[in-house]
Computed example of a mutant assay.
Amino acid sequence: MDINRIFEITTSSQFNKLALEVFNFQYDNNTIYRNFCGYLGKSKSNVTTVKDIPYLPIEFFKSKKVVTKNQKPQIVFESSGTTGQIVSKHYVSQLAIYVKSYLKTFEYFYGNIEDYCVLALLPSYMEREGSSLIYMVKDLIKKSRHPKSGFYLDNKVDLLKTLISLDQSAGKSILIGVSYALLDLSEHHSINLKNTIIMETGGMKGRRTELVRDELHSILKKSFGLAAIHSEYGMTELLSQAYSKANGIFNCPPWMSVSIRETEDPLTTETFGKIGGINIIDLANIYSCSFIATQDLGRVYKDGSFEVLGRFDHSDVRGCNLMVL
């Protein structure tokens, strides 16, 4: 397939047509996905619309090598996990697709990366190998070409001084941080920012008590003097990200879409505004699987935007026979 077509999508009809092409390609070339479709009675002959496409449970990335065309991986991204826990692995055969996806996504939502100073506060991710988030942020820092772009870990005083200095210079700055680290920073000192974006990537990583997004954003807005907190939604198993510029409402780039499945019946789609499991189509996942049933709970709105409301626990999962194929 011509990969460039993925990043040239501008309409829903283009997306739907290409999604069906990708389904056919992955059905033919991804043994894990084809076998999964077979157990559901799905094949190229009866998948004729996007709504017919089966979504592979994300747990398969923990137990199987989910690849299309079985190319040798250039890099393997791994999810975080506690000692002894099985982690997800995403075998990426063409790293350039990931790079193109996150750069075009950033440009789609925020403009030219060279217009920004990029600061990162991601200590838990820095402590392990194989983080797709760290790979992306490192590259954004490099491509920003700003002398003060970089990672900050324990020196919160220096980070606050840098934030204030950059903000007063009236240039664009963005601080990307894991939730618990941003909370730690917010408790260290309160400042008023006007030209800075604070973006949380979620996650307390066991370091602090979990907070609902509204509570987290309320604390951060007050501490940083901002009207809104931005958010990034991504995961090891995807090569694309969604972004929220306010209120936890996310939007996708044109080659990615989100739908909701019923919690009681994972093969049935929920209507707009209803809470259920988040299904994702990420066409950038051309050489793994583009159709993923996540463990996140959320709701989707008619304009295609969505919000994340939590995660399934094991007692929430229905249709468990599908998980042991």
Rank of each mutant, 00 (worst) to 15 (best):
I3H: 07
I6C: 08
F7V: 09
I9A: 11
S13L: 15
S13F: 13
Q14Y: 12
N16K: 14
N16D: 15
A19H: 08
A19G: 01
E21F: 04
T31L: 14
N35F: 00
F36E: 09
F36W: 14
Y39L: 13
L40G: 00
K42Y: 06
T49Y: 00
V50R: 06
K51S: 05
K51R: 03
D52C: 02
D52L: 05
L56G: 04
P57Q: 12
I58A: 08
S63G: 01
K69S: 13
Q71E: 14
P73C: 07
I75N: 02
V76A: 07
E78S: 09
E78V: 10
S80R: 01
S80H: 02
Q85D: 15
I86Q: 11
V87N: 08
V87H: 03
S93R: 01
S93A: 12
S93G: 06
Q94P: 00
Q94R: 14
L95I: 15
A96V: 04
A96R: 07
I97F: 04
I97D: 03
S101V: 09
Y102R: 02
L103P: 00
T105A: 14
F109E: 13
F109M: 13
I113T: 11
E114P: 00
P123I: 11
S124C: 05
S131M: 09
Y135D: 10
M136Q: 10
V137Q: 07
V137Y: 09
K138C: 15
I141S: 08
R145K: 15
R145V: 03
H146F: 12
P147C: 02
F151M: 09
Y152D: 01
Y152K: 04
L153M: 14
N155G: 06
D158P: 00
D158E: 15
T162Q: 09
L163I: 05
I164M: 06
L166I: 15
S173Y: 05
L175P: 07
V178Q: 05
A181C: 05
L182F: 11
L183A: 03
L183P: 00
D184K: 15
L185T: 08
L185R: 03
L193S: 05
I198C: 04
M204K: 11
M204E: 11
R208L: 15
R208A: 11
E210I: 04
R213C: 06
D214M: 02
H217M: 02
H217Y: 06
S218Y: 09
F224A: 01
F224E: 02
S231N: 10
M235I: 02
L238G: 02
Y243E: 10
N247L: 07
G248P: 09
G248R: 10
P254Y: 12
W255R: 08
E262N: 15
E264T: 13
P266I: 14
P266F: 14
K274C: 10
I275Y: 06
G276P: 09
A284F: 03
Y287N: 14
S290G: 12
G298R: 05
F306T: 03
V308Y: 02
V308N: 01
H314F: 08
S315V: 07
R318G: 00
G319H: 03
L322V: 03
L322Q: 13
V324P: 00
L325A: 06
L325Q: 08
